[in-house]
């Protein structure tokens, strides 16, 4: 197999609030001999909020980001569910509406760019599963996570709406997703099944609706705890921020102390590969990693 190469759209969070996600992404990519070319030109995707204010601007900016993957002739890989949804939604809308695409391209032409629609956009989780393969991954595991019950937390924007994602997420069933469970098993861990695994963490309304957001976070951690999880794992840095840093607000909202260590999926893979915790950035977690 030729070497896997992707254009990496980091999103803002991996460069700011979850530096450990960037570290662990690069660390496992190196181990897996995957080349990630960082799209340094890329802007913020608007995080599902810019489009509420200015939908057209959001399309133009996302199309521009995709242009830079196209220029390199690569598939774009995202490491944030919300980046994945926003970028993919832009692609879907432009690819099926030539008039809208022309309008966007009119703006892009002013900076010498053109959106063509030639690059695929995939979340790293699915690139690992579909392109790298879990069998190959499991052969690289030197420290199986066998002692641990790990609760997968999928995050909304990788699985819903399935109409947008199905071609890039292996037709994941939004009501019974499997990918992250399979990844946990491939890393030698035990996957925990619980009701909240495909539910919302509340991140996007955290400032506007703190109570709603805190209850959702609390329910998620509680569901995992009640099913004997030792830790949670997520492919989304926004879910991670919410679960890792907001457990006190969440505990207050649900009337019970809830707290679990939360790993990024990249960190889970890295630990199974035997990479040192500090190289995966576990020192950056607020809900301490207590099991290493």
């Amino acid at each position: 197999m030729s070497k896997l190469k992707y254009a990496l759209f980091t999103g803002c969070t991996a460069r700011q609030s979850t530096p450990e996600q960037m570290m662990s992404t690069m660390a496992i990519a190196e181990k897996m001999d995957i080349e990630l070319v960082v799209l340094e030109e890329a802007s913020c995707c608007g995080a599902s909020h810019l489009q509420d204010y200015d939908d057209f601007l959001s399309l133009v900016l996302n199309a521009r980001n995709i242009c830079y993957a196209e220029q390199r002739g690569m598939t774009m890989v995202t490491i944030c569910n919300t980046c994945q949804l926003n970028t993919m939604m832009t692609k879907r809308r432009l690819d099926k509406d030539p008039e809208l695409k022309a309008k966007v391209n009119e703006k892009l032409a002013e900076v010498g760019l053109e959106y063509k629609g030639t690059s695929e956009i995939v979340h790293f989780l699915y690139a690992i599963i579909d392109d790298f393969g879990l069998e190959k991954l499991s052969k690289m595991v030197v420290k199986p996570l066998a002692e641990f019950n790990i609760a997968p937390f999928y995050g909304c924007h990788n699985i819903r709406p399935s109409e947008i994602h199905e071609d890039s997420n292996g037709h994941e069933n939004a009501y019974a997703p499997r990918s992250l469970d399979d990844l946990i098993l491939a890393c030698g861990g035990k996957n925990v099944d619980y009701e909240e695994k495909n539910k919302c963490c509340g991140f996007h309304a955290e400032l506007q609706a703190p109570h709603t957001a805190a209850v959702l976070t609390g329910n998620a951690i509680m569901g995992a705890m009640d099913n004997n999880a030792d830790m949670m794992v997520t492919p989304c840095p926004l879910c991670h921020l919410k679960l890792d840093t907001q457990y006190e607000h969440a505990s207050k909202a649900v009337g019970r102390d809830v707290k679990l260590p939360v790993l990024h999926m990249q960190q889970m893979i890295g630990l199974a590969f035997g990479i040192e915790g500090k190289d995966l950035g576990i020192q950056h977690h607020v809900s301490e990693i207590n099991f290493l």
Partner: peptide, 29 residues
């Protein structure tokens, strides 16, 4: 934990920022 800065004005910047600023200017609706 090194997840945020004491100085919130320290923000990583995208390359080709002039291009982004121009698009924001001409595409805003």
């Amino acid at each position: 934990k090194g997840k945020a800065h004491i100085n919130p004005l320290i923000v990583p910047k995208s390359e080709k920022l002039d291009e982004i600023a121009k698009l924001v200017k001409i595409s805003s609706t």
